[in-house]
């Protein structure tokens, strides 16, 4: 185990991938000279050269589409879209090409593409730079959607994604880049299983990505109030590890789902429905959700804090649910 920041872990993953496979290359806006908008690729241009660390124009549709083409053509591209906000300009390529080509071609073609992007709010960058759309992407069959929350996953899921024959979208919460954690180099990192980050008896807090840390903090506070919360990190939204969720709920009988997406049509709604379908008779009360308020994310801190899921709201949702216990 070594200490590393999330961004160092991503960089370590990129380096290992580039060193290990000559087919791997990285492309995206400002990944080279600038060193990456979040400094994840700092130093890689110098080490690997401009053929493999490719700065692109501001042409999201073209370079994501080119990633699809390069993957079809035998390479293992890693495409960095600076943030999920800008991935909207590449939606056509993602939804109509990346996600469909295998099935639509009768299984003839593989698109082994990895797309990384920053996601999430909490940095006071207002309505056009604070989207959390990973749940939205998880709606689409044909792509895989993962949300590494720990430094070990930040590195490990990238490497695991490169072994996949199908397109994998990695959502890195922008808030996490400077945070530090234990990087476990020997961990066997998979792309499919949810992880119990804290075990507990009274309630399951189900979450992913940047919200994991809020959920863990809420669980700490709840412990002081005699409520023993289990915290589940989904890690992958598609495919979704429903059995781990249901096993947790079977134990705790209560679930609160925390998701930075907007509440209506959120990924939390999907998790809730899965619990309803597969764990209804285990429940002692309705599934609760803590999501973002239904508003474009505002700039001032007090409003942004109120718009996004926060520790106090998670604690309150759990207390509300547990209040009824006999």
């Amino acid at each position: 185990m070594t200490k590393a920041t999330y961004r160092e872990a991503v960089r370590a993953g990129l380096r290992e991938a580039l060193l290990g496979d000559p087919r791997v290359f990285l492309m995206g806006e400002d990944v080279g000279r600038y060193g990456g908008a979040y400094a994840c690729s700092r130093g890689l241009l110098e080490e690997f050269g401009p053929e493999r660390i490719r700065d692109t124009p501001l042409s999201e549709s073209a370079f994501v589409g080119a990633g699809i083409g390069a993957a079809l053509g035998g390479m293992r591209p890693i495409v960095e879209v600076m943030t999920v906000n800008f991935s909207l300009l590449a939606l056509d390529q993602i939804v109509n090409n990346a996600a469909t080509i295998r099935h639509m071609s009768g299984g003839q073609f593989s698109v082994p593409l990895v797309v990384r992007m920053a996601t999430g709010g909490g940095r006071q960058v207002a309505a056009q730079h604070s989207h959390s759309l990973e749940g939205w992407y998880a709606h689409i069959p044909g792509i895989k959607v993962v949300t590494p929350a720990t430094v070990t996953d930040a590195k490990g899921m990238l490497l695991a994604a490169l072994k996949e024959p199908d397109p994998v979208f990695i959502f890195e919460h922008a808030y996490l880049y400077p945070t530090e954690g234990e990087l476990d180099e020997s961990a066997m990192v998979d792309l499919t299983r949810a992880a119990v980050r804290r075990s507990g008896r009274d309630v399951s807090i189900v979450t992913f990505g940047g919200s994991l840390w809020k959920a863990l903090e809420a669980a700490d506070r709840l412990a002081g109030q005699n409520i023993d919360a289990e915290v589940l990190d989904l890690r992958s939204l598609r495919p979704l590890d429903t059995s781990t969720i249901l096993a947790s709920v079977a134990k705790t009988h209560r679930a609160v789902v925390v998701d930075e997406g907007w509440r209506t049509g959120s990924f939390a709604a999907e998790v809730s429905a899965q619990i309803m379908e597969g764990g209804f008779y285990d429940l002692d009360g309705p599934v609760a959700r803590v999501c973002s308020a239904e508003v474009p994310i505002p700039y001032p801190k007090h409003l942004e804090d109120a718009a996004l899921p926060n520790v106090a709201a998670i604690v309150q949702a759990v207390r509300q649910l547990v209040k009824s216990r006999g």
């Binding site: 006071q124 960058v125 207002a126 309505a127 056009q128 730079h129 505002p298 700039y299 001032p300 801190k301 409003l303």
Partner: peptide
């Protein structure tokens, strides 16, 4: 500053 007397009631900040 993000104040309510701003040109977008503070909701946009510098970029908006």
């Amino acid at each position: 500053y993000g104040k309510a007397n701003g040109c977008a009631r503070g909701r946009g900040g510098s970029m908006h």
